[in-house]
Structures are given as C-alpha cells and as structure tokens.
Design a protein around this nucleic acid. Sequence first.
RNA 1: CGGGACGUAGCUCAGCCUGGUAGAGCGCUGCCUUUGGGAGGCAGAAGCCGCGAGUUCGAAUCUCGCCGUCCCGACCA
Length: 550
Amino acid sequence: MVFRASQRFLPTLRDAPADADAVSHKLLVRAGFIRQVGAGLWTFTPLGWRSHRKAEQIVREEMDAIGAQEWLAPVITPAELWRETGRAGIAALFHVRDRDLLLALTHEETFTFHARELQSYRQLPQCWYHFQTKGRDEPRPSGGLIRVREFIMKDSYSFDRDEEGLDASFRAHEQAYHRIFERCGIETYAVQAESGVMGGSESVDFLAPSGAGQNVLVTCENGDFAADLEVARALPRAPEFPERLDQPTEIATPGTTTIEALAELLAIDPAATSKAMPYTKEDGTVVLALVRGDDRLEEAKLLAALGASARPATEDEIRTAFGADPGSLGPVGFGGEVIADDTLREGQFVAGANRTGWHLRGVEAGRDFEARFADIRVPREGDRCVKCGGALTFRTAIEVGHIFKLGTRYSDALGAMFLDEDGREKPIVMGSYGIGVARIIAAAVEQNHDELGIRWPRALAPYDVHLVALAGAETQAEEAADELSRAGFDVLLDDRDLRAGEKFADADLIGLPLRVTVGKKTLEDGMVDVRNRTTGEDRRVNVAEVGTQG
RNA sequence: CGGGACGUAGCUCAGCCUGGUAGAGCGCUGCCUUUGGGAGGCAGAAGCCGCGAGUUCGAAUCUCGCCGUCCCGACCA
C-alpha cells in the first residue's frame, strides 16, 4: 500500500525530550513512534504501532510453528486466584481499589485456572499463549520502553505429563525464541538466569546487548561463555601474596576500615586481603560471607548458596556476634557459619581480627578457620573465562525474553490435576515463557542506529520504502509509489510540502530500510535514486529494481 | 522506600540569587522569496510560570506543603 505522509500523523521532533537517557528512548520519541503518558506509560503512535505489530506477528508465527495455540485472557483478574498461589502480596501488583481484583502482571494464575479443564494425559501436552497487557508497578520506570509499568507481553504456558515433557516444551521454546530474535534482527544471548531463592527449576534469559538496560551480559571473546552478571562465574587474576606465615599474626590497624586503606598501610596487594560481610538469616542467626578484598559480594549468589533469605546484619548484631566493629571482622574465631568465595581456597590472606582496630596476617582457610566454599563474588573487568581463559566483555543488556520451568508450583496450588496412564492423579508439569514485544523494539533501535536516526531491521520497519517526492516530480513520485506498491511494498510517500533537506532528515530519523528519491535529477532518465539506510549505499535504478537493493 | 535534580509556549531552555506582572531558539499560522540535506524575509497566534497555602502593597521569583518527571541506590514476580 501507499501511505501519504501529508495525511498521516508523523510527529517527528528535532530535539530529544530532556528526560531521555537511552538512545532508543530518544530516537523512538524523536522519530514519532511513541509518546509518554506518565512514568512508564507509553502510547504507540500509528507509526510505532506498525513496528510493534510486525514484531508481534513474528512472535506469533514462531509460536504457532511449535504448535502453540493463541488465546486471549483478561488483564483484570480475581485477587482470589493470586491468594491461592501465594502471590497476592507481590509489591508490583496493581490493585483495583474498590473490588477484589487486580491487574495481572503475568498470567500463570489465569492459564493454570483454565488448565483445570485438562483431565487426562491424552490431552497433554498443551501449549497456550496470548499477547496481553501486563501491569507492573515498577518502583522506577526508566529508559523509554525498557522498563515500564504497562506493556504487551507474549506469554505462553506449557502443560506436560512429566519432566521429560516439560524439557521438550522448554527446548522448543528456546529454539523458537532464537528464531524470533534472529528474524527481528537483534543480537541476543541465551544465558542461564538467576534461579533465585525459589531455586531448582531451570530458567533461561535472552539478553540483547545494548547501550541501556537493567542487565549486564558477560561474554567471552572466544564465544564459549555468556552469562548474566548476577550468575556469571569468572576467574580473577591471582593475588601477589606476601611471605607465608606459620600462624596468623595480629597487627594493629587503628582506624583502618577499608580495604584500600588496609592494603596501603600494610603495603600489600588488595587481592591478598579478605573482606567480611555478615548476614542475618530469617531465623536470626548470623553467617559470615567472605570475599577477596578487591572483590564485591554478589548477594544473589550468596542467598542461593545459603538456600535461604538473609539481609546484611545490623551493627548491633555484628557487635554481638563478633565482639568487634565492622571493618575489623574476620573468620578466625567466629562461631557461626562462614561462606567463603572460591578465590579464598588457596593462599594466605589478611583478615579482620574480630578485635576493633586489629587485623590478622597469614590467615589460611582450613588451617585457621572452617568455611563452606562457593562462588559468591561479582565478576569484573579483567577477569578471564572459566572455560578457556579468554578475555571477558561486560555489556549492559535488555532482557527481551525469559523462559522458566515452573514444575508443579502453580498446578499444585490451583489444583490443575490430570489422570495419568497409570490411573494416578498427578499435577500438570508447567513451564512459562515470556517476551516483551516493546523491548524487542527498544533493543532493535539500541542495536541499529546512527547519529541521524534509526536503522530499522527490515522485519520491524513500519514501512518498507520511504519515497521522497521532491518539488517538481510529484507525478513521477506517485507513479513510482504505485509501482512499488504493486510489487508488494508498503510505501511511505513523503508528499508533504517541505524542503528536500527536511524530508531527508525525517527519512534518516524514521529509518526505513530503503529510501527512494524522485526529483528533477531523476526525471530525465525515468530512474530513481535509492539509498540503503543501513549501508548508506546510493544507487540509481529503475523503479522495478528497487526491491533488489539492499 | 532512601539520596539528588528538575517542573516557565507544542519541543529545548533563559528569567528566580537581588520580588514590580513573561522571554529566546526551534516548531505552528499567513504572505513573499527559495527549492537534491532541517534556507531567508515580513507579519502573527500561542503560557493557571505544576497545584495549594503563606509572607508582601505586589510572587514565575521568597517560605511551607502536595503532585509530577528524571537520575543514583534498594527492589525486579
């Protein structure tokens, strides 16, 4: 079809909104794809909605291809369902004020509710999905479309007889997701996701590296490792240890409470020190997390290692448990459990003496204290790959998809049972799989733009061709637009009464893959000028050949 | 929820310190000129200065409260 710019709403802006930070935020607003209504609340303009629908359709096709069936479930949900699964207390839930209803932030409850109609193993497996608005009261929306309070998600739910079936459903989704993101033209990495305190079940995140985002993606230069920073393992450099001591030796370090100050005072490598971080578990017991002095503790890893919820201990709790102030704490003589990072297995480190103003030199795990070892540090720049020793790269990334093995958590809670072949009633084994459609749009822009504007991947561009009609060539431009339309292209015909420069600038900003210019220069030979937005390549061709460009 | 910043025309901002009743650029409307990279001229329209109290003869400006938005942190099913 041909779409006339003169009759469309194309609100391009010269300036980016002052509060925009992320590139995708700036460009999507400037190019007229989205407008903000409130914090984390966005309207898609006709232009933006076309791109959104393109992404949606790709997701739909790939879901259908693995046998998933499209539904539509309501946004408003009885709160009762959420009480049954124990999720009614989630802080991000929006509640309806005068009714016992809430806005779904995902649809496990609803689809499990429907799965109660599945009664026999003969009806399994099933895979259901829908595109539906999710409401999440994010504490801090940010980055345009990256972190919002309302968004359309494709969420699907698989229902299987057993773990093997779930695994097959999970792998099918994993493959479908790779195809989806590839078709959308965005680079993504499937990484092991944080399993959290709930633990156990497998969970994979799809991260799209970009200039903005909530996640940090760690990848190896040799391509054999990719992980979310929160769960990534990495090898730090080896410390330069001082001379070995036969036993820990106390040394006065008055007023020295930071690792930097300690390392300077003792003239040693900060990596040859240890840092003690006391945590209090829910039952009130204090445990000691121990990492190397130059490292940071990854709380999520610590909690996973503890298998329990915990919080940093208060100063009072610390004094009671250690008899010393924070800054002089260490594992030697501590009566509780010590969880030490793997980097502390070998070597002698300086540690707090549990006596305010004193440290111990030559502290050695196993000899001077007992500890449970685990990976509880945050990897950082300069670390090496655990698989091959290659250099690691750290990039911020957008989480565009997330797939979970749920098991029977929801089917148990809501009573979604089936009768198996052996005549026994069993809970349905479930998985859930989400894609944030608008995040695909944001990631595509983050990964495909230049200083002039967006460079849409072909599959997500709102139109195929931006046809710039210059003064004096209006008729020829119309003819060219019609011909391209007959050839199957969606053509944005810029027939506005503007100067050439403004039209070109808008074309660059909106970023359709091909720009066709018809003007006086092209009148004589009946050809048109074609520029590929991605490569910048210019060509003069017959209209019929436009489709072969780029 | 803690820390910080900002709310003045459609957009980007100045004015606020030192109170005297509102400005610029871009955009918008009309006319002229121009016409392959946001050109120029002339004439215009457009603001509950976030909201509410207070101080004052007088508040965009000072004080207090509230609301909104953004950034850092906490949180992230």
